[in-house]
């Protein structure tokens, strides 16, 4: 990326969430961490956007900034038609109930002293039960995430496995019938067999409730499986936005590096040849490279990349790439 730009936004459609030029910075001793630098994205109702990137690329900071936890340094976040930045704390609390966050470590995300039956309806305790019957709603909610209400209802988080805790977290987040669900690495602390269960559960919940979902993860195959669209981040910026069905036709050198790094259990050993990018360390987000932030690792980098920041542009239908050296004729492999 290392570029910014808004070419991939779809202002002519009804959108559940719009993020415009989001900037997140953290002051630290000796400078400022540029966690997210000008991220724009939009989300249609029922759509899943995967945000893909390595640790330190700002994907989690972006997810939290969308939730206003804490609010971003600058930029706009619109949920439906309501602008969230700068609204009153009281209104924000109300709006935040329309967005929910599922975190990476499900055990530490739950209050260890409360029982499952109280944990899953904490939101309703605050916002009111309407005409719902408490006990039957708890049971219904637990069954909907594949937990047996009889066994888990009275348990506390430490009595459950990681996968079960993640199911409780998901039940909690869909209890208020939100519009947007933000999942921050929801399966990366789980075993593969449990990971598959949770991914299927999220997929079914999204379909049933017509949720718009942001799925943040570092695992290329996981993101590809669950998303409609994938946004690739590097050092706080967007490299590429493309439909996940065409992920293997990615053009940005960084996306290609990620794809080449995936070890696959069931295919031939990926050819050791042509790692498409130089395997050097991630530059510091305290002092990101000028121009294109990926240039220090990019095999295509030229002087232009150091001086001029690439902007996202549509290279193929629905595929947006921020790179000076990529066009529709670029070879895929």
């Amino acid at each position: 990326m290392a570029g910014s730009g808004t070419a991939h936004l779809r202002p002519d459609q009804e959108r559940a969430l719009v993020v415009d030029d989001l900037v997140v910075q953290f002051p630290v001793t000796g400078g400022t961490v540029h966690a997210v630098s000008g991220l724009s994205l939009d989300l249609l109702p029922g759509e899943t956007l995967g945000i893909l990137g390595e640790s330190g690329c700002g994907k989690s900071s972006a997810g939290r900034a969308v939730m206003q936890l804490p609010p971003p340094t600058s930029g706009e976040v619109r949920l439906g038609t309501v602008e969230l930045t700068g609204i009153k704390a009281r209104d924000m609390r109300r709006k935040r109930a329309r967005m929910q966050l599922v975190l990476q470590d499900p055990v530490s995300a739950l209050n260890p002293r409360r029982r499952v039956k109280d944990l899953v309806v904490e939101g309703l305790e605050i916002w009111g039960w309407g005409d719902r019957d408490r006990d039957s709603f708890v049971d219904e909610l637990l069954s909907s995430v594949g937990l047996d209400p009889e066994t888990v209802r009275d348990k506390r988080p430490h009595e459950l496995s990681g996968g079960q805790c993640q199911r409780v977290c998901i039940a909690r987040s869909i209890a208020l019938d939100p519009d947007v669900l933000i999942c921050d690495e929801p399966v990366s602390s789980l075993d593969v067999s449990v990971q598959a269960q949770i991914l299927n559960l999220l997929e079914q919940a999204r379909e049933r409730l017509r949720l718009a979902m942001i799925f943040i993860a570092h695992d290329v195959a996981v993101v590809k499986n669950i998303s409609d669209r994938v946004l690739v981040m590097y050092l706080g910026k967007t490299c590429e936005v493309l439909p996940s069905a065409s992920l293997e036709g990615a053009l940005h050198p960084y996306t290609r590096l990620l794809l080449a790094s995936v070890p696959e259990a069931s295919d031939e050993l990926p050819a050791a040849t042509g790692a498409p990018a130089r395997a050097v360390e991630l530059p510091s987000p305290l002092d990101p490279p000028s121009g294109c932030r990926f240039r220090t690792r990019c095999p295509l980098a030229t002087d232009r990349c150091a001086s001029e920041e690439p902007v996202l542009r549509e290279v193929r239908p629905a595929q947006y790439v921020a790179c000076h050296h990529v066009d529709e004729s670029t070879e895929e492999v």
């Binding site: 496995s161 593969v192 067999s193 991914l199 195959a221 590809k224 499986n225 669950i226 409609d228």
Partner: peptide, 20 residues
């Protein structure tokens, strides 16, 4: 149960029921 890169989006994965 491993998600594969060549799966189309929204593929439901085969799971192993239960826990170790």
């Amino acid at each position: 149960s491993i998600p594969r890169l060549d799966n189309p989006p929204h593929t439901l994965l085969r799971t192993i029921e239960g826990n170790p």
